[in-house]
């Protein structure tokens, strides 16, 4: 690791002292950043440890929940309000990593984690446009099992690895940001960026901005929601494909539906098209199949991950059918 200085933030103001141009980075649980520093992918000159800032998980005035950025993943997953009102989020977090890592990882850090692309991680031996803009992408034509089939660009095919963020995207969560110039709130579905020509730009966080909290709006559909993760090991592995879905059916017709996919795109992939295809329709197998087609429309796989189209289709149909069955 390159030498760095360490500052423990005592307040939001300490965190807002961050100056990325001087090599400052915020440190949450460290579960991704410390690993990348050891690999030489990240070389901050100063770490501002924000893991000791607010960990609160509180009901919001509007009837939703506000989760502070330093709340630990395990605390969010186990919180009674999350478990009962947003089971998809609980399950998504529980599907991720291991109990130890969930105890360490913060909500803010989870959103900010980097891709697990093997070529991105290989600072010594592989080209990567995300790590070294303009250098090229060795993942294309290489091992792409964990790579994206949607939203890619010729410069980058990496996936965002978070499970939690997939659920946040599906649940229309809002991310509260603070900066020296004031605060703003952005939809979770917009927070992560597609790679385009600049895969090094991963979020819409402006330099100096920090994540303060995540707010879940009241979402009746989320009461009946779940998250299914498909992976190479039964546990403790990143998603090949994951599906977060919520379904509300009234008198046989779909009143509200939320769908987001993980493991298939450079960002948590909210399937707006599939949702549109379902709203107001009867909750039937045919409708779910059509929605799955809509969700995968435009998929452009690599030879090593073409199977993900079929895998995502089937998983999505199965998850929606399961939710519909439970509602019956």
């Amino acid at each position: 690791m390159t030498p760095f200085s360490y500052l423990r933030a005592r307040s939001l103001d300490d965190a807002l002292a961050i100056d990325p141009s001087r090599g400052d980075r915020l440190l949450g649980g460290g579960t991704n950043l410390i690993d990348l520093m050891r690999k030489g992918v990240e070389q901050p000159s100063r770490l501002i440890d924000v893991s000791g800032l607010s960990e609160g998980i509180e009901p919001s005035d509007s009837g939703g929940i506000v989760i502070a950025a330093a709340a630990r993943n395990s605390a969010v997953a186990a919180h009674p309000l999350v478990r009962t009102r947003y089971p998809m989020l609980s399950r998504a977090i529980l599907a991720g990593a291991s109990a130890q890592i969930r105890n360490m990882a913060t909500v803010g850090g989870n959103l900010m984690q980097r891709t697990r692309c093997l070529y991105f991680a290989d600072a010594a031996g592989s080209r990567c446009n995300k790590r070294d803009p303009g250098s090229g992408c060795d993942a294309i034509g290489g091992f792409t099992r964990y790579h994206a089939i949607l939203g890619t660009s010729p410069s980058c095919i990496a996936t965002h690895p978070s499970d939690m963020a997939v659920a946040l995207s599906a649940l229309d969560a809002r991310i509260h940001l603070a900066g020296t110039g004031g605060g703003r709130t952005v939809p979770a579905a917009d927070f992560h960026l597609l790679p385009g020509d600049h895969p090094d730009r991963e979020t819409l966080l402006a330099p100096g901005e920090v994540i303060v909290a995540v707010e879940l709006p009241p979402t009746p559909a989320a009461l009946k929601s779940t998250y299914r993760k498909v992976r190479d090991r039964a546990s403790y592995a990143f998603a090949l494909v994951s599906v977060g879905a919520a379904l509300m059916v009234e008198e046989g017709r779909i009143e509200d539906v939320r769908i987001a996919l993980g493991g298939v795109a450079p960002k948590p992939w909210r399937a707006f098209g599939a949702e549109t295809a379902l709203r107001g329709r009867p909750a039937t197998a045919d409708a779910f199949a059509a929605a799955a087609d809509a969700a995968l429309e435009g998929a452009a796989p690599q030879p090593g991950n073409a199977f993900k189209i079929e895998l995502a289709r089937r998983t999505l149909i199965s998850v929606l059918s399961g939710l519909a069955e439970d509602l019956r």
């Binding site: 579960t31 410390i34 395990s74 109990a99 130890q100 890592i101 105890n103």
Partner: peptide
């Protein structure tokens, strides 16, 4: 952070000591 062999308890909770800075 991939094997769990370094697991210890910090304030009673299990964490990976390899990805935890001592300063933290």
């Amino acid at each position: 952070g991939a094997c769990g062999a370094c697991t210890v308890l910090v304030d009673g909770k299990r964490v990976l000591s390899c990805l935890t800075l001592a300063a933290q």
